[in-house]
């Protein structure tokens, strides 16, 4: 069969030592990972971490400076034409021809593939059947993203690439898009997505590679990444006192069972191995400096905490 993925023993993407340099700037610095058949794999990291460059190398539309990658068993730098028949792609902020309607755009994309699917059915799948005659510039941001997803799914791809699929979307559109992505996995497809949203990565992804400054700094399932932090909770609270200078960071760090403490003005964050010990420590310290604690929030640790503990800076700096 010509138009089938190569036999790859359950590995749909294999990146080995990818490096991409723009002049002296290294956007991607020695990145290697594998994606298994049927999983949603996430590249998580802040803007400018190199996520888009990695995904575009794997899509065969950008050449790596060094390193190789196999996608569905084909080498990206040699067989990109073959790969393009088998993959579905949604770019970060996809733009379409302004003079073609939604339906005409999907008809055009469908014609590119030997197994192109019915454009009207695709519109139904992304809940845009009533927008068939609408030009893309008259669609809302969420509708445009769904149209882009329909174009990405039109060849029934074995592997779907999604670059920041929900950036700039309202919550309703995000959930709708998440549903479509989960349905795709349910059909046995593999998905590679990039995101800078912790909740999105945590909810959707089977495995995550955390990227910072062009490097993978951690790679595992969301649950194991969080478990590796070895903390019970993250506590956020506000101190009410005369001056924020009276709050001493080293005193917070000295509270028993504390993993990491942070202070921003009157607001403090404590990552702790023991929620009870942290709270009694905080209350004692508040009494000591004559402050009152307000708006205390206890959260289970998230990927945000993982990123913070790995890099020392927050994800959305």
């Amino acid at each position: 069969m010509e138009n089938q993925p190569q036999r790859t023993d359950g590995v749909v993407v294999s990146a080995q030592g990818l490096i991409k340099q723009y002049g002296k700037f290294t956007a991607v610095n020695d990145v290697s990972f594998e994606i298994h058949s049927g999983e949603i794999f996430g590249l998580l990291g802040p803007n400018g971490a190199g996520k888009s460059t990695i995904i575009e190398i794997l899509e065969g539309i950008r050449k790596p400076t060094q390193g190789t990658a196999q996608v569905l068993g084909y080498n990206v730098s040699q067989k990109s034409a073959k790969i393009h028949e088998l993959i579905g792609v949604q770019l970060q902020s996809t733009t379409f021809f302004e003079e073609l309607t939604s339906l005409e755009i999907l008809q055009l994309f469908s014609s590119f593939y030997p197994n192109g699917r019915n454009p009207r059915k695709m519109l139904q799948e992304v809940f845009l059947e009533d927008k068939a005659g609408t030009f893309p510039q008259n669609l809302s941001g969420g509708q445009r993203q769904r149209l882009a997803l329909a174009a990405a799914l039109i060849n029934d791809p074995a592997l779907l690439f999604l670059d920041e699929p929900t950036t700039g979307l309202d919550p309703q559109s995000r959930h709708m898009l998440w549903g479509i992505i989960e349905d795709t996995r349910a059909k046995g497809k593999s998905v590679l997505l990039t995101t800078h949203f912790m909740d999105e990565a945590q909810k959707l992804c089977d495995r995550i590679a955390i990227i910072d400054q062009g490097k993978i700094i951690a790679l595992d399932t969301p649950a194991r990444l969080i478990a590796s932090l070895n903390i019970a909770a993250s506590i956020t609270a506000e101190f009410r006192c005369d001056s924020s200078d009276t709050i001493q960071l080293y005193k917070l760090q000295a509270i028993p069972e504390t993993v990491q403490a942070q202070k921003t003005g009157f607001s403090i964050t404590l990552q702790t191995k023991n929620t009870r010990a942290a709270f009694s420590g905080l209350l004692e310290y508040a009494d000591e400096i004559g402050a009152v604690i307000e708006n205390a929030i206890v959260q289970s640790p998230t990927l945000e905490d993982v990123f913070l503990s790995l890099t020392g800076h927050a994800l959305r700096d």
Partner: peptide, 16 residues
């Protein structure tokens, strides 16, 4: 214009 707004980049990822 198509190259600037990314239309061509999207087409590059198809067999066209």
């Amino acid at each position: 214009i198509w190259r600037q707004n990314g239309v061509l980049k999207r087409l590059a990822a198809t067999p066209l």
